[in-house]
């Protein structure tokens, strides 16, 4: 599926400081509707902080964030989520002492219960966890927890999903399963912004790449353009 021509997310001049450390420094970019966009950069470049700013978990010191036509910087996270901007976290955060099904139903907060239940059964079938729906999440393997988290975030119709290292620590078989799942949902109208350090994978599945370095947008472009960009190579491998 090709990306749309209008941005679903627009950030401008984002600034976030933690004491003396500037985590995000005047960052501005757009994510086009229906696209799969990668957000890459060395450790500490401000990727997760950018996610936190977009989803309301941190308030920017300066700058604006527009989701569709609504300004959302400073909004509460639950409001942003209910408007169709979902996220996952770097470390899988399922609700361990709740069952798989209960986890999914929490993801549908604010929607009608009966259709939420039907949707949960459908998603569990899609990720192959139907047999485990009454199992506590604490008893699942790491990979199964990743799948629960991925299904849970799609319990409500999402316009944009931010995935923070969805493939970290995941074996190649499950990685391909997750990719297939994401691509299927993308084909049905969800836009994705993905952070990951699996460069080959990101270059393969994304249409566009944003590169952050020291809180600034270093460059953006197609995977081919980014891979040959000298500034990107320098930020990852250092100057020689």
């Amino acid at each position: 599926m090709s990306e749309g021509s209008e941005p679903v997310l627009r950030t401008d001049g984002l600034l976030k400081r933690f004491g003396g450390v500037t985590a995000v420094d005047g960052c501005g970019f757009e994510v086009m509707r229906d696209s799969m966009t990668g957000l890459i950069g060395p450790n500490g470049s401000g990727k997760t902080t950018t996610f936190d700013l977009i989803t309301g978990f941190q308030r920017p010191d300066k700058g604006t964030i527009y989701f569709e036509d609504n300004r959302i910087d400073g909004d509460r996270p639950y409001r942003i989520a209910r408007n169709g901007l979902g996220r996952t976290f770097q470390i899988t955060r399922v609700f361990p002492q709740m069952t798989v099904l209960e986890n999914l139903l929490v993801g549908a907060t604010g929607t009608e219960l009966r259709s939420a239940a039907a949707r949960a059964l459908h998603l569990l079938d899609l990720v192959g966890l139907s047999d485990l729906r009454d199992e506590f999440c604490s008893r699942l393997s790491f990979g199964q927890q990743k799948l629960v988290e991925m299904a849970r975030i799609h319990m409500r119709p999402q316009k944009l999903v931010l995935l923070d290292e969805p493939f970290a620590g995941v074996n190649p078989t499950l990685t391909e399963k997750l990719v297939a799942y994401i691509e299927k949902l993308r084909g049905e109208g969800t836009t994705y912004l993905i952070i990951d350090h699996e460069m080959k994978l990101i270059m393969r599945i994304c249409d566009r790449i944003l590169v952050l370095d020291q809180g600034k947008l270093l460059t953006e472009g197609s995977p081919e353009e980014v891979q040959t960009n000298s500034q990107v190579l320098s930020s990852y491998f250092g100057d020689k």
């Binding site: 639950y78 955060r93 709740m98």
Partner: peptide
């Protein structure tokens, strides 16, 4: 109830619950 599920999700991980749309 779903209210109860939301409360339990707050107990389990409040930030994740909020990211799911729960008005914690």
């Amino acid at each position: 109830s779903r209210f109860g599920l939301r409360l339990l999700s707050i107990r389990e991980d409040e930030s994740a619950a909020e990211a799911m749309g729960v008005d914690t």
